[in-house]
Amino acid sequence: MFSLILRRLGSVLLVMLVVAGLSFLIFNYLGDPVNNILGVNATIEEREELRRTLGLDQPSHIQFWHFLQRAVAGDFGISYRNRIPVIELILSRLPATVELVFCATIVALSIGIPMGVYCALRPKGLISRILQMISLVGISIPQFLIGMLLILIFSVELRWLSAFGRGEVVQLGWWSTGLLTHSGRMALIMPVITLAVFQISMIMRLVQGEMQEVMRADFIKFARARGLTDRSVHLRHALRNSLLPVVTVVGMQIGSLIAFAIVCEAVFQWPGLGLLILQAIEFADFPVMAAYLALVGFGFAMINLTVDMTYLFIDPRMRRK
């Protein structure tokens, strides 16, 4: 297991390298931040001077090399736009996204799994058909639309919830949380729903499919033959055996949500990583983009590792290897 982790960390480093390298190549096509920093009135001379200062006049492989040299020392540079060290910036935005994604995932799991179980057990019932139809809609509606719809209903018409922001947050060390204040929790509602709708639908379909498969397995038939209650057969045996692929997919989902909850965060002005990277792209804030992409690679690899560990926890057969 230890060697597994070591091997993983090796591949993590490689992934981060490749991602960061590719991002430097891409930067060439995005434009540069010079105009955003100097303003429209800067002369050609001043622009060239700033490009030299920032090293943007260098070919991208040299820029990448310099980035690597600094990154090894833990210095990802400072944001062109926010003017603070990139790491500090990313860490300050991380809690908002993690809380949002965490809550959305909890909501999605606690709604999606029961729905999936229900549909697996009564695939032909009326309620199942309705749920399946809803989930199809949930999978196909763009997040942007869900978000705007919620805002129109709950902010503009009913005026119950705030259309933007995180509400009041409380600092716990470097972590900021909205979970401890009323306005913070209220602010979570719409973004969480927006993010969760797709996840609920996806988890429901996944659980349903897997569980229907498992329900045909011999050990389920044998569990029934042993006289176990339906509840025990369905939940303790069938559901548990259906969860492995769910863990994988949900893990990957959490990863991509943390990395790319961009639409949802943009709609609700949620001050997290998604909004940060969106603004960084608009500004050509290369240090933020490079560090962010490298960290996203790192995050994904970590999540993969966690998913594997969860496998070990759920499935005893894997422990032998």
Binding site: D218, R226, G227, D230
Partner: peptide, 25 residues
């Protein structure tokens, strides 16, 4: 009927490899 199963009528199936829940001791 469910209460009878296992209690008064037991069953054994063909494939012992798949008759047991792999995730439970």
């Amino acid at each position: 009927q469910r209460r009878l199963r296992g209690k008064r009528i037991g069953a054994i199936f063909q494939d012992p490899l798949t008759s047991l829940d792999p995730l439970m001791t």
